[in-house]
Amino acid sequence: MAVSGAPYRLRSAGDLPRRSPLAGLGAAYEHMWLIYRRTWRGSIFGSFVQPVLFLLAMGVGLGTYVDTASPDALGGVPYIQWLAPALLVSTVMQGSVFEATFPVLGGFNWDRRYHGMYATPLTPFAIAFGQLGWVVTRALMVASIFAFVILLFGAAATPGIVLAIPVAMLTALAFAGPVAAFMSTQRDTAAFNSIWRFGVTPLFLFSGTFFPIDRLPDFLQPIAWVLPLWHGVDLARALALGTVGQQPLLHLAHLVILLAGAIVGLVATYVMFKRKLER
């Protein structure tokens, strides 16, 4: 093979262009798209199968039993319609914890992608928010497919089910931010396993997705209030069932708490990424 010189152009030392931090953010985000292009088929399939299984087992299976046993238990709403928007938000939340864990651990420790990015004009701002931007994009994808499946099942009470999608994205960010910030301090998946077992799974089960939180023992109810999942679940459900107007203040509070969680997560991720990269 004939190789002579490198494809290299000598530039003057004074040629030092400035780039906006947003351009860097776009490039970091584009990196995630590029990775996703390799795996999207499997991921789309998974995003489709999970809601089908859950809506079949819980919505149709358990739902038929609930609706027959006590038709008025949920204000006369069929169980599957009551469950579907909540399940959408809960499922997206779980996915967002994954998306904030493995790419972050890998970026810092495994293939060390972030360190490669930081050797370029990219800033910790671009690297942190490129990653979280991707988490929100994945939330949009998973939520949209889920909403589509809900429509296929005829499980949407009103067109308001579409509004469950942005609520799910906001909930995803409220979870992914703190998780990404924490994972930047970790070297392996040991802590992740604990988060999943003692955090994500109990939340999934006890945040009002499958039954109203007023069925929980009294001492557990404040926990639902503190963690963001119930707020996302309850807001998405109200939007889908068209019942927001019944308790406007409560639903406004849900939105404020979700926004606060998302902002705290963004700031925490930025601070932790910056600290980890600049040593």
């Binding site: 530039r11 990775i35 293939d111 060390r112 992608r113 360190h115 050797a119």
Partner: peptide, 14 residues
Amino acid sequence: RGRLGVVPQQDTLD
């Protein structure tokens, strides 16, 4: 950094 090329000790390839 826009004008540097860096070959780190540990690979950072994706």
